[in-house]
């Protein structure tokens, strides 16, 4: 990745718009992801519960094993690509900030845990759903902050 070796990203005429474009697409992905998850799995505890385990009153079947595995397999792939790219750009731009490592670790740990907790909710115990919801929102909020910070830092900040 060339942006990891360029000395000053803000002074590089070609890399700045490229990274800005990437970050805008990342923000669009994060927003679109919320809508997709809302319709496929559900965003909050009750919705997820109904999707995973079904609901007799509403004649909803539980999610089958193969559909769940396909869903989580796709999620892992897209999440790892988005998060890895975003955290690399962020670390390149915010390495002087004291809390940058904390932000990156929060993003990566919460994203990783959200996947583990979703798996545990399906296979082991229903109670993990609430923890999954918390970690899911944490990683989305932190990723959103990091993307906004990077755009601001690339385009407007004078000294970071």
């Amino acid at each position: 990745m060339r942006f990891t070796i360029i000395k000053d990203l803000k002074q590089d005429r070609s890399m700045r718009p490229i990274l800005n474009g990437l970050l805008i697409f990342t923000i669009m992905y994060l927003i679109a992801d919320l809508f997709v998850i809302k319709s496929s799995l559900g965003l909050f505890e009750q919705e997820i519960y109904k999707t995973l385990y079904g609901d007799k009153d509403e004649f909803l079947d539980p999610m089958s094993k193969s559909i769940f595995l396909e869903f989580i397999h796709t999620q892992i792939f897209f999440m790892m690509m988005i998060i890895f790219t975003l955290s690399t750009v962020y670390m390149r731009l915010a390495f002087k900030l004291s809390y940058s490592l904390f932000a990156v670790n929060t993003l990566l740990v919460s994203a990783f845990m959200s996947l583990i907790l979703l798996g545990l909710s399906y296979y082991v115990e229903k109670d993990y759903i609430s923890l999954y919801v918390i970690t899911f929102f944490i990683w989305h909020i932190v990723a959103f902050y990091m993307a906004i910070f990077c755009i601001w830092s690339l385009s407007f900040a004078k000294c970071i």
């Binding site: 397999h73 890895f84 990156v104 990566l108």
Partner: peptide, 17 residues
Amino acid sequence: NAYKYSVIYFLLFSLLL
């Protein structure tokens, strides 16, 4: 050092994948 973090996490995600 900073990139080591990213790579470690990337490997963890890869193991999940």
